Computed example of a mutant assay.
Amino acid sequence: MGGFYMQYLESLCRRRGWHDPRYECYRDGNGYTCLVLVNGREYQTDLAYESGSLAQENAAMRAFMVCRNFSVNGGMLARNGIVQGLPADESSRRARKGSRHAYSSSSHGHRSRSSHHSSSSSTTSLE
């Protein structure tokens, strides 16, 4: 079972008739990052996290915060120099996959790489 924001995002998608969110997690030397595809747009973490599940939860939180007010800003939001909600481009995702170890899952196929949690990682901060 995913975190609260993963559940919120899945529920939002179902209410709006969108496909379930698709998560792509990447691991590099700094930890895990995640990109989630929602309604043809990409939302991503801005930090590396200790586990894939924390990265997925953060990406879901970012997507949910934008998508719940989708009509207000056209599904896009800029935070910390990262524009969230860019239209998904298959070629850009392939380029990212080639540079880092990646795995994908939908909200139903949630995969966790580690059960460690860090109290220093916050999924509620938007700044």
Rank of each mutant, 00 (worst) to 15 (best):
G2I: 06
Y5V: 09
Q7Y: 05
Y8P: 07
L9P: 08
L9Y: 04
L9E: 04
R15I: 13
R16W: 05
R22H: 01
E24R: 02
E24V: 03
E24P: 00
Y32H: 02
C34T: 13
N39Q: 14
G40S: 15
R41P: 05
Y43M: 10
Q44R: 15
T45M: 11
T45K: 08
T45I: 10
D46A: 14
D46Q: 10
Y49R: 15
E50R: 15
G52Y: 04
S53K: 09
S53H: 07
L54C: 09
L54W: 04
Q56G: 02
Q56V: 03
E57L: 01
A60F: 03
A60V: 07
M61W: 07
R62L: 15
R62Y: 10
R62F: 13
R62S: 14
A63M: 13
F64D: 05
M65W: 13
V66M: 07
F70P: 11
S71F: 10
S71I: 08
V72E: 07
M76H: 09
L77E: 12
R79G: 08
G81Q: 09
I82S: 02
V83E: 12
Q84M: 14
G85E: 08
G85C: 12
A88R: 14
A88Y: 15
D89Y: 06
D89V: 12
E90C: 07
R94L: 05
A95F: 09
K97I: 11
G98D: 12
G98H: 08
S99D: 10
S99T: 13
R100P: 03
Y103F: 14
S104T: 05
S105T: 10
S107L: 02
H108C: 01
H108K: 00
H108F: 01
G109I: 00
S112Y: 05
S112A: 08
S114N: 04
S115F: 05
H116Q: 01
H116L: 03
S118H: 10
S119Y: 15
T123E: 01
T124W: 00
L126R: 04
L126I: 02
